[in-house]
Simulated assay, not measured.
Amino acid sequence: MADGRIPAERRRRKPTRSGVLLSEDVIVDCALRLVGQHGPDALSVRRLGAALGCDPSALYRYFHNTDDLLLAVADRIIGDAMAGFEPDGMPWRDALREMALRIHRGYREQPRVAALAAYRVTRRAHEFRAVDAGIGLLRRAGFSDADAVRHYSAFVDTVLGHAALDAAHLALPVERREADDRAWTGVYAELSDAGHPHLAAVRGVLPLMGGSSFETALELVLAALVAAAPGG
């Protein structure tokens, strides 16, 4: 099938050994939980089968393979993030900002999945609606069809790139994450003025490097879009 879905007639109708009635949503729920607890290696039919109390082969009635499942997991994150998003009546810039914040927050809440899936194209319903909404907002801003598509690609890649970066940071062991954050007040603060004059000049504000730059990058992209929009 074009969207990768398994035909309904191939899906399981009886509960598993543990009493779970399998469905795509149940399997995605389990995959999100396992990856969140154990990391990317947990996304295997063996681990999923054990967690759901079913033979691993039963999962192939719903998903072609683990990559197909990963795309469904990514699409769930998009769907949950965009639930309740109503851009009609909002200024297009404000609607794009809310869309970006929602998607970024959705992936930050699932950091171990974000590292696997933020850069993928899910080819599923939630992504379809999100892309349609984003391009629609840029068309509403007055951009040509081609420019709306190009600018949406740059916008959403900025959002997803930062989502993956921030999620990867969150997924680090605590001691490594804290060591990275301390670098800006530690080794960077100790660099010589002669060897690194510009770092020395901004030494007092270097801790700003320790946080996420997502919102700053988002505002820069939005400002550029407003400046370029035919309607101003």
Rank of each mutant, 00 (worst) to 15 (best):
R150G: 09
L222P: 04
L32N: 00
A141C: 11
V202Q: 09
Y119N: 11
R203S: 06
L32F: 04
L43I: 07
P7D: 08
H126P: 03
S153W: 09
V156Q: 15
H38R: 12
A217R: 06
G211N: 10
L59V: 02
A148R: 00
T185S: 15
L101D: 00
R123H: 13
V149T: 09
R140D: 08
R140Y: 07
T122D: 07
S212V: 07
S144V: 04
A146V: 14
Q37E: 15
A72T: 05
A171L: 06
G136Q: 05
M82N: 04
R123G: 13
E215H: 11
M82A: 08
E98D: 10
V226C: 03
A179T: 07
I135Y: 06
A133W: 14
Y119R: 12
A189R: 07
D180M: 15
H151Y: 12
A114V: 01
E9I: 10
M1K: 12
A130E: 14
G79W: 00
R105L: 03
V149I: 15
A118P: 01
I6E: 12
V131Q: 08
R129G: 08
I27D: 00
H64Y: 06
L165T: 10
R105I: 01
V174Q: 14
A81N: 08
E178R: 14
V156L: 13
E178I: 12
V159I: 11
A189M: 11
N65M: 04
V20I: 12
G142E: 03
V113M: 12
A58F: 11
A133H: 14
E98A: 04
G53W: 05
P207G: 00
A100Q: 01
T158E: 10
C54G: 01
G195R: 01
D145E: 15
L199R: 06
I6W: 09
F128S: 11
G232L: 11
A154M: 13
D75T: 06
R182G: 11
V205C: 09
L191S: 05
D88L: 09
A115Q: 06
D3M: 09
E215N: 08
L138Y: 00
G53F: 05
A74K: 11
D147F: 00
A179Q: 10
D25G: 14
E190A: 15
A223L: 09
D55V: 05
Y188D: 07
L206D: 00
P87I: 02
A95S: 07
L191E: 13
